[in-house]
Amino acid sequence: MNVLVLGGYGAVGGHVVRLLRTDGLSALAAGRDAGRADVVLDLTDLDGFEAALDNVAAVVNCAGAEDVRLAEACAGRRIPFLDISATSAYVQRLERVDGPVVLGVGLAPGLTTLLAADALDSHRGPIDIMIGLGSGEQHGAAATAWTYSLLGQHFSDPDGTVVRNFSRPKRFEVPSESGYTPAAALRADFADQHRLTREFGVPVRSYLRLDSRAATAGLALLTRAPALRALTPKHMPGSDKWVVLARPAHGPARWAAGRGQSVATAVVTAAAARTAVLRRITSPAWIHEILRIADLRDTLRDNGITLGVDNSPR
């Protein structure tokens, strides 16, 4: 049986296919480019997508296509559908699909979700999630478009107030081993903060920063004037270093760091796909319901990702 990877030759999908094949699974890259795809597929053609599901054990969506009908088609055949999207409204629609859907299978949400769930197991209090990305990394088009789509948009805070994306800066201390310097991060609408808040009954808030302070400041400016987005440079200053951190109000923070956001996303996604193939999933589940951070420790290490616990004062 095959794992069908939508967008399987893209920035994330290409790594997912490689990792699954390294583990001995049959992974097929799906997309419109006949020169790069194992399965030529236009995701706007639902009949063609249905036909491509024959002999498929799981589908991983790395294409950036946020069409719930794809998940519903898989659910109708009891095929697990895994999605790396961080878009809150889309993820909430996926949570209502009647079938095996796995959510939050990337870096953020995904690794952030696992770190926060681990912290919440020990300290049932408010959690701040900080996502620090490398602004110099050449992301896929879908990742860049998603970030810019948040400009000027609003979402609900756990306290009931309305928050504008890339506002309300908060300073985060990060371990020196992460290669990141301490700096302010901005509130951002990552889907797992809403799920964790509902599930654990405590405020969980997500913040985003880039390794370039100038680029982070640019997001704060653009969110108040989204029309200026056209002026953003094609190549941002910064590196490919990333760090994610879940900081409880009481107790040590959990963190992970590495290089290459796309690779990190793929490592977590491939691990979730392997789990979905091996166990029976019948209804929508978040990654922390099928995996623990301890389950990924060796896999993360083997792919150059460092995990740690930070007991330093806030």
Rank of each mutant, 00 (worst) to 15 (best):
A266L: 07
D211T: 04
T197Y: 13
T275E: 12
G218K: 01
A285E: 15
A249M: 13
P237M: 03
K234C: 04
A220W: 03
R280F: 04
A253I: 13
P233N: 08
L245H: 12
P237G: 05
A270Q: 00
T197A: 15
I281W: 01
A264V: 00
P284S: 10
V277I: 14
R195A: 14
A230Q: 14
M236G: 10
L196V: 09
Q261S: 13
L208Y: 04
G238N: 05
L221W: 10
V267H: 09
A266Y: 03
A214R: 12
L208G: 00
A273I: 03
P203S: 09
L196G: 05
R247S: 14
L208E: 02
H235W: 12
L196P: 08
R213S: 08
W255Y: 14
I287D: 08
S239K: 11
V268P: 06
L228T: 01
A257Y: 01
P248M: 02
G260Y: 06
T223F: 04
R259H: 15
S206Y: 03
A270P: 03
R247D: 15
T197M: 11
T197L: 11
R195W: 14
T216N: 00
T275A: 13
S239W: 09
T216M: 01
V202T: 13
S206F: 02
S262A: 12
T265W: 04
R224E: 07
L210K: 01
V243P: 02
G201F: 12
T269Q: 04
T223A: 04
A253W: 06
V204S: 00
L245M: 14
R205H: 08
K241I: 12
A256C: 11
D211M: 05
T232I: 09
A227D: 09
A230M: 08
A257F: 03
R198L: 13
P233G: 09
H235P: 07
G201M: 10
D211C: 01
I281C: 02
G258N: 02
R205W: 07
A230L: 14
Y207F: 12
L196S: 09
I287N: 08
A270W: 00
A266H: 05
A256T: 10
L228G: 05
A271M: 06
L221K: 04
Y207I: 01
I281H: 02
V243D: 07
V244F: 02
R280E: 14
T265G: 01
E199Y: 13
V267D: 08
L210T: 07
V244W: 00
A285D: 13
S239C: 14
T265Y: 04
G258L: 06
R205L: 10
T275L: 08
R280M: 03
R274Y: 02
R259Q: 15
A230P: 00
E199C: 12
L245I: 13
R254I: 02
V244T: 06
T282W: 05
R224W: 08
F200L: 11
L208F: 10
D211R: 06
A217Y: 09
P233C: 03
R209E: 06
P233I: 02
L221F: 06
R254T: 02
L210E: 11
A225E: 08
G238D: 04
S206I: 00
L221A: 14
S283Q: 15
K241F: 12
